[in-house]
C-alpha cells in the first residue's frame, strides 16, 4: 500500500449559520507539495487553513493528516469526535503563520521561538535556545534575537513568526496571506524566507496568497477557490497561461488589471 497523503480534505463542509462557506471540499496534498490557494475575497481560502489548524470546527466530512483523522478517531469503522490529546498529537504536525503575525508582544524574538519547544516538546532551555537561534539565523535575524516585537518592522516580525512556527518542526506549514499586512518594500524579505523553506523537500506548504507572481514561480500546484469550491486547479504554468474555467479567467484578468 502506498503511503497516505500528507493532508486530505474529504467532502469537508463548513457553515456559518445559513451561509455555506465550504461545500463538500475535496483536496489531497502529498508530502512535500507546495500548494498555492488563490481566489476572490470570501471564497473560503482562510477557512481551509483555519480548519486544518483546528481554529475552526468542521460541519461535515473529515480532514486527515497522514491518514489520521484530525479531529476524530475511528472506532468500529465509525468516526467519533476525538479528545484533546488526539487533536494535539495530530495538530503537532501543522504550523501556521498569520497575516497579522500574532507574535507574543511581551516576549523577545528569541523567547517567542522558545516558548512552545520548552512547554510543549519539553526541550531544555538550552536546547530550545540553540534551536531558536538557528532558526532566527535562517530568517536573517540573529542580531535581533533580544528585541521585542514592537521594536521590529513588520517584515522582521513576520520572519520571527515563521521561525517560531518552524521551531516546533511541523510537517505542514500554513501561510495565510503572510505579506498582506506589510509595506510593499518589506514583502520581498518575507517571500525570500519562504522560498528558502521551499527548498526543503520534506516540508509540505499550503499558502493563501494574492501574489500571483510568487504563486506561479513557487508552487507545485495552484488551487483556485470560488464560492467555497475548488473551481480549477493545476500546474501553475498551465493555470496562469491558459486558465480553463471562465471564473478563473475573470479573476486573473481582474488581478492583472489591479496590478
Amino acid at each position: 500500500m502506498s503511503e497516505p497523503p500528507m493532508v486530505s480534505f474529504e467532502n469537508v463542509t463548513k457553515r456559518y449559520g445559513s451561509l455555506t462557506v465550504l461545500d463538500g471540499l475535496n483536496l489531497t496534498i502529498s508530502r512535500g507539495e507546495k500548494v498555492a490557494i488563490i481566489g476572490p475575497s470570501g471564497s473560503g481560502k482562510t477557512t481551509v487553513l483555519r480548519m486544518l489548524m483546528t481554529l475552526e470546527t468542521i460541519d461535515g466530512g473529515v480532514i486527515r493528516v497522514e491518514g489520521e483523522p484530525l479531529t476524530h478517531t475511528e472506532r468500529q469503522g465509525r468516526l467519533v469526535p476525538a479528545n484533546l490529546a488526539h487533536i494535539r498529537k495530530v495538530r503537532a504536525k501543522i504550523g501556521m503563520v498569520f497575516q497579522s503575525f500574532n507574535l507574543f508582544p511581551h516576549m523577545t524574538a528569541l523567547h517567542n521561538c522558545m516558548e512552545a519547544p520548552v512547554k510543549v516538546l519539553g526541550l531544555s532551555r538550552a536546547e530550545a535556545e540553540a534551536r531558536a537561534a538557528d532558526l532566527l539565523e535562517m530568517v536573517g535575524l540573529s542580531n535581533r534575537r533580544d528585541y521585542y516585537p514592537s521594536q521590529l518592522s513588520g517584515g522582521q516580525q513576520q520572519r520571527v513568526a515563521i521561525a517560531r512556527a518552524l521551531a516546533m518542526r511541523p510537517r505542514v506549514m500554513l501561510f495565510d496571506e503572510v505579506t498582506s499586512a506589510l509595506d510593499p518594500e518589506l514583502v520581498g524579505e518575507v517571500l525570500q524566507v519562504i522560498r528558502k523553506l521551499g527548498e526543503e523537500h520534506d516540508l509540505t506548504m499550503l499558502m493563501v496568497t494574492h501574489q500571483m507572481g510568487f504563486a506561479r514561480e513557487f508552487a507545485d500546484r495552484v488551487c483556485f477557490f470560488y464560492e467555497g469550491r475548488i473551481c480549477e486547479e493545476g500546474e501553475p504554468k498551465a493555470f496562469f497561461q491558459n486558465p480553463q474555467n471562465e471564473r478563473s479567467r475573470q479573476f486573473l484578468r481582474a488581478v492583472l488589471e489591479a496590478g
Binding site: M53, T54, L55, R91, G95, F98, N102, F104, E115
Partner: peptide, 17 residues
C-alpha cells in the same frame, strides 16, 4: 487580541500554558 489565542493553538500550547 484573539490572534494571541490562535497563535497559541497553532503552537500547540496547552490551555494552562
Amino acid at each position: 487580541p484573539r490572534g494571541q489565542w490562535e497563535a497559541s493553538v497553532a503552537l500547540n500550547l496547552g490551555r494552562a500554558t
